[in-house]
Every structure is written in C-alpha cells, then in structure tokens.
Design a protein around this nucleic acid. Structure first.
Lengths: 336, 336
DNA sequence: CCATGCCGTGCAACCGGTTGCACGTCAAGC
DNA sequence: GCTTGACGTGCAACCGGTTGCACGGCATGG
C-alpha cells in the first residue's frame, strides 16, 4: 500500500481497537456482526473508527472469509451496443448485493476468453459469461472450478439466462408474411454465437411453416461495416425483406440500401434484433426487443443466490417481443 | 471458497511445499522470484505444483504484498457510447500490465460516484475517474487516499489525461464560418462536465474571434431524446448551424430536424463531437474525433507507471481533429 | 444465598501467501 | 588449510481481518 500522505496510511483494525480501548474482535464485530455486541459499544467503536478514518480492508476480509466480494463478467466486445446495457444491469445487481464487478473483454476471441476467465478465477467468487464464444468443453472445465452463470448460451446443467429471441424472430417472420412477403434473407452473425444459431433456426422454421422462401447471407462479425458490405448479397438473393442477426448489422444494411437508392420500407423491408440503437435510426427500425439489461441483472442475481447456497442449474428464459417501427411494409411490386 | 468438486479445493502453498519436500518460502519464490533459487529446484517445484493443480491465491498475495492487482474505472454512464471504447482501452492496458479491471457506473450521480469510489478504494491499487461529476474537493479527498488518474477533468496537481476537444471545436466553428454561417447554436451537455465547459468556451471564443453570433441551448443530459427535444429551441434561435456537445445529442437533433422537414445539410448544418456513432448516421455526421480508446489506455498506463513509483502530476493532452462528413454546407438563403 | 446460564468481550489461531534474516554449504582467495 | 563471501534454502513474523472458544459478570430461579 502506497503511503499517499504524511498522515500515514489508513488505520488498521488494531489501531482502532487500541484507540477505543477494546479488542480487535470487538471492532471486527462492530462492523460485521453488530447485533452480537452492546449497542453502545458499537456506537463508541464506530465513533472512534470514523474519527480515525478507518475503512475495513477488503483484501484481508476476503482472505479470512474466503469470499472475494467480487464477481466478474466477460463479454465478447464492449463496444458492441448490445453489451453496455447488459453490463450496466450486472453492475447494478452486483452493487446491490455488495459485490464489485470485474470486467473482461475477450475481443470475440475464444482463446483470449479462456485465459481471461482463468485469470479471473482465483480472485472472484463467480463469473458471468455473456455470449461466450468458448466451446462447451472449455466452459464446463471452468464451471468445475468455480461458480459460473451463462448468458445466451445453453449448456445443460449450468445455470444460464437465455434471451428467447427465437420467439420474437418467429413473430417477425409472421409479420413479414402477413404483409405479403414470400421470400426473405437472414443475415447471420458470429458463427460461434448461440443466439445466432437460435435466430437462424427460428427464421428457417417459421419460414417453412408459413411457406416462405428463406435465403441466408453470412456476416461474420456484427458490425456496421459488415452490414453495408452485405447489401449486394442481400439484394442479389431476390428477397424482398431481410432479418438481420442484430440491430448493428441492420443499421449497416439500412445505410447500404440507402446508398444504392433502395427505399425502406417501400422497396425493401428490414428487421433487426435486440432493440438497441433501433429507435434512433432513420427510419426507426422494426426489431425484436431483448432487454439485455434484465439479462445482466438476472445473471448476477442467479450467481449471488448460488453463492448463498441455493441450487444451481436453473435455466431462466427471458421473453422478447416484436416491436413494430418504420422499416417494414408490403413488398414492392415485382419489376419483372 | 466453495468446494466445487469432489477432488477438493485448490491446494495451498504449504501442501505443495510438503509434497515437494521443500519449505513454503521456496515454493513462494519459485513462483514470484525464480531467479533467487536453483533452476532445478524451480523445475521440481513447478512440476509438483502443476501435478497438484496449484494456483497461487491472488487474495493472499494481495494481502501480504499490499498490492491488489486491480485498477478500477468509474464512468458516469456505460450506456453512453463515448465510454465503451474508453473502457475497452483501459481494460486492454490493465490486462497488459497484469491488472484486472473493476468497473463502476455512477449513473451521472456525483453522490453515487463518491460512494462508489470510496467502496473501490480499499480493494484497488488505483482508480481512473472518467468524466467525473464530483466536485474538485471530493476528487482531491479521494486522491489523498489512493492513486487517482482523471480523464477529462483538469484538476491541477493530479495526473490526468485530457482530450483537447476545444481545438477540434474551434476548427468546427472556423469551418462553419468559412461556409458562410453567421450565427450558430451550441447545445450543451451535462452541467458538471469539464468537457462541456471546454467546448462551450471554445465555441464562444472562436465565435467572438470570427465575428459570429453564438446562441446557447441547454440539454441537461446527453441522450438521443434530449437532442430531439431541443430542436424547437435550436430552430427558434435563428441560427443556421448547430454544434452539439456530443454525437448522441447530435443524433437526436438530426432526427428532430428530419421530423420537422428541415433538410441537413441544405437547410441546416450540424456538427457533433467525439466521433462515436457519427459514421453510422444518415447523413454521416461531421464531428470532432476524440479517440476515447486512447484516453482509456493512456490513463491506466499513467496509473500503472505511478504505481511503479514514477512521478504523478503529469498532464497528458490528446489531440483531436475535425472530421468532415455530410452534415455541413453553406447556409440556406434567408427567407425574410 | 448459591447454582445456573446467558451474554458481551477478549484471546489466540487461522486464512495463504511474502520476506527479512539467519544458517549451512561450498568454492575461491591468500 | 583456514578465512571469507556468495549463494540457496528455511524459519518465523507479518499483512489485516475473522471466528471458535473461554472467561467473567450479571440476572434469574430455586
């Protein structure tokens, strides 16, 4: 500990004890188990403690109790707008439960994610893995060593919170079918993303059920640029509507379409997913709400309850819904 | 520590020592100061350690060395797109220096920020305060207790990295003047934001220097909605161009303008700041680049170098520049 | 009035590492 | 051949809290 000021470092429990004329234990208990000792003793100790500027040393406490008082969350990419709200929810829940939040960014790289989680391991009480890109084996291996909660990754036996975008996506397909579209494209996201697999499957299933033709275009990463770059493929597919893996991709697609003079929604319909950014686009994007914030919050709640000894293979599914805005309309009359 | 698996908890240094037939000290040194002991001893210890699955206990190490191995960053609002890249930079730098990153979100509330920093204090080696909303006194008080680095907050005597958006903003005003604008509005952001004060000042100064009229409109918070809500005031000011505190506000303004049928840039020019989102708007927003990622990285570099004993009142200023895109043009001909 | 028991507090061990110092060994120097 | 010193390792104290157990005082019950 650096000795920042002349007055010396923060006092220890022993110094407070000496100043208050009691023992270390009493000071300790005044802070962690006040009900065990007389109210006036507590008051006196607290008084002396605040006068001295005493703050309990988190690390020392962690060592003797075996609880670090932190939970970690690792995400593939903080800069992706889906994650900030999720992190925010996690941080709020952690804070409320008295934990601090460690943050890791794996940069979409499974290997980096693996070492990151390993590094966090010894210094946290538990880890939340959001949209993990690791293999199921890697995840299970980590889960064996310490409490783990997954977000948007469905590994049986592990606690996880899943955002059921599949249902919302199915509703999106129905919406499109109802408008008269007969052929649509799904623009897929990261290959190792569970959500992507779910959404792709949902589009295909709903399409089959409703008798629509479904094409696919692959955008490897979820970025604005990837979206604009896929526009030629999308247009080339012959479809009249597109469902993008997420809003970011949809935003790029919107821009690419505009650049080619294709009007949305008159000439082409587009639907995103997650409902981040969507309201701020022009035209405002029809999308599937995901409530990432809820997921973040729920995940650390699950983690904390698990740390408190409750059972741990809960599978929490969060609902989604289609939110209609201004990027869908009946298909344009075919030009041929 | 929960005993996740039947095989039992991770072994301690003593168990490794016993198994290897050496003392605790030797095992400890094999890990932290291998050059102090014979290469073959190190090899032997390492061998036994890996066989037993030993991992040094971070908390215990932190307690005896007095270094937590973590740095914290607190931001006013993770969901504001300016911060994710900054956090990303900070996380990368921390990771590289062998530190983990604790994250705090103050929700733009100085009081929350104050307690958050206080809570972090004892369990981190240092703190990065990004765009702090606290008073200078509060900041100094925390800085007295532990290493602190500021981002976008200019408190003399404390290490800080400042993004010099004022220069970029001045260039923006010149650009507008060059296009023929004679009257512009500045839409201000959070009251207690240093950046906001800097930018406001820069607009005023440049306006005065170039003989432009400068009006002001206050948006209390930096959000999309606040931007659209200010459009009436902006239009009512009689100006022909607007410079917004940041891109988020500018995005809202763009939308509000569009909703009222005001064409950008033909009838009105708009400039943002930070260069987040800007490239993805339509039309693409002319803005001032800020490179938040650099700032985040630089801040933890500064912090780490300070922890290594180097001097600590460095004031690092990061350059910015105006990036021209498609939201500025000569003013429309006056209708009166 | 003494035995019983509860309750508030203190003692000391412990959490799992790190580190100053002492000790023993062995090679080099005189 | 003995001293000197360097070097590798071990001992034990320490980091700053927590906690099981013991102790002493007081109130209650018989």
């Amino acid at each position: 500990m650096t000795q920042q000021r002349g007055s010396g470092a923060t006092p220890t429990i022993s110094q407070v004890a000496a100043a208050a004329g009691v023992s270390k234990s009493t000071v300790s208990r005044a802070f962690s188990r006040p009900e065990m000792i007389t109210a006036e003793t507590v008051a006196h100790v607290m008084d002396v403690a605040t006068r001295l500027g005493y703050v309990p040393n988190h690390t020392a406490r962690a060592l003797s109790t075996g609880r670090a008082g932190t939970v970690a969350i690792v995400v593939p990419d903080i800069a992706n707008p889906f994650f900030p709200p999720l992190i925010r929810g996690a941080q709020a829940a952690a804070d409320q439960a008295g934990f601090s939040l460690l943050l890791g960014d794996s940069d979409e790289d499974p290997t980096r994610e693996d070492v990151l989680v390993g590094k966090f391991g010894p210094q946290t009480d538990g880890i939340v893995l959001a949209s993990s890109r690791m293999t199921e084996e890697q995840i299970r291996a980590h889960a064996e060593r310490r409490p783990l909660v997954l977000i948007n990754r469905d590994v049986p036996g592990l606690p996880r919170v899943l955002i059921d975008t599949a249902t919302g996506i199915a509703a999106a397909v129905e919406h499109l079918a109802g408008l008269g579209h007969r052929h649509l494209v799904y623009v897929s996201g990261p290959t190792s993303s569970w959500s992507n697999a779910e959404r792709r499957r949902a589009v295909r299933a709903a399409g089959r059920r409703l008798g629509l033709k479904v094409s696919a275009v692959a955008a490897r990463r979820s970025t604005y640029d990837a979206g604009v770059q896929r526009v030629d493929d999308i247009l080339g597919s012959g479809a009249s509507a597109v469902i993008a893996f997420d809003d970011l991709l949809a935003q790029g697609i919107l821009a690419g379409l505009a650049a080619r003079g294709v009007g949305v929604p008159d000439q082409f319909s587009v639907i995103g997913c997650d409902d981040v950014l969507a309201a701020t686009m022009s035209p405002p994007l029809t999308t599937v709400s995901a409530h990432g914030g809820h997921a973040g919050r729920k995940a650390v709640d699950l983690l904390v309850s698990f740390l408190d000894g409750n059972e741990g293979d809960e599978r929490r599914v969060l609902d989604t819904s289609l939110v209609l805005r201004s990027t869908t309309a009946p298909p344009a009359v075919r030009r041929n």
